[in-house]
Amino acid sequence: MSETSIELAGKGGQLDKGGKPQDFVRNEVVPRRHPGRWVAVALILVICIQAAHGVATNPNFHWATYAEHLFSPFVLRGVGWTLLLTVIAMAIAIPLALALVIMRDSGNPILGGVAWFWVWFFRGTPVYTQLAFWGLFAVLFPRISLAVPFGPELFSIDSRLIVTPAVAAIVGLSFNESAYLAEIFRAGFRAIDRGQTEAAQAIGMSQAKIWRRILIPQAMRTIIPPTGNETIGMLKMTSLVLAVPFTLDLMFATNAIANRTYLPVPLLLVAATWYLAITSLLMVGQYYLERHFGRGHDVIAVKGGPR
């Protein structure tokens, strides 16, 4: 370890903000050296290059097959469906979860009870089972009809036309996810100081406006990181739509090719590559969302500010 040495530089003759000459000299500091880090970097580099070389030259990985299928139309269609399922399921789950939290907090015992039951049920049963049930919906209820209770039927339709495999997959994933998100959101809203609601009430805001203008924007800051987590989890959870069965997603596509070619390893790598790529894309989106909702918190406090 090198020693930190401090030298005095000659008078700077700089001007401060007010234009007055500074009567002090900034310390000229030689920063601490970290030779240990360079050793570590060199070590890690050697290990990485060796590992990469080992994997790249290992014939068991079948890189030619990997390259052949990475952009095959069959795989790309799977990527598209997986992305679509993730986005639609989250787009349904997020407002649903928000509604559940507002219901739970409404002070209305009926709404609160329904929200509690929803979370209890969808969080308490395996998503695979839920997906299988949604897949069997048309078998369990062949026709969906609108009728006066215990009276005449007004309208009726074949269930298979409504609950298609894609719909079953989306409903199954989003309902399950809404239960988890509801708990994340609830934690986010609880973290907001009670004084925020009181201040909003004091200027005469309605409860709906308090949610929209005061609570939701503030909760976003704490809600976004775990929701990003859930979105990435959802991306991978889409592989369970096999239970419906829905057969167009990425995992099903790569498995199908693997079963045909008897080469599981390169196709697992194809799937992993795409999941990683989509996750990276989602992380970029999350960065911008966090930056937007961090306003008023992440700004650097100016001189004379509190703390």
């Binding site: 004084g195 009181e198 004091a202 005469g204 805001m205 309605s206 008023g296």
Partner: peptide, 21 residues
């Protein structure tokens, strides 16, 4: 809420909305 608009309240802990200027 309408009645509350007619009174102004200032709190000990300010309770400004932190996400707004």
């Amino acid at each position: 809420a309408e009645q509350r608009r007619r009174t102004g309240m200032v709190f000990q802990r300010f309770n400004l909305f932190p996400h707004m200027t």
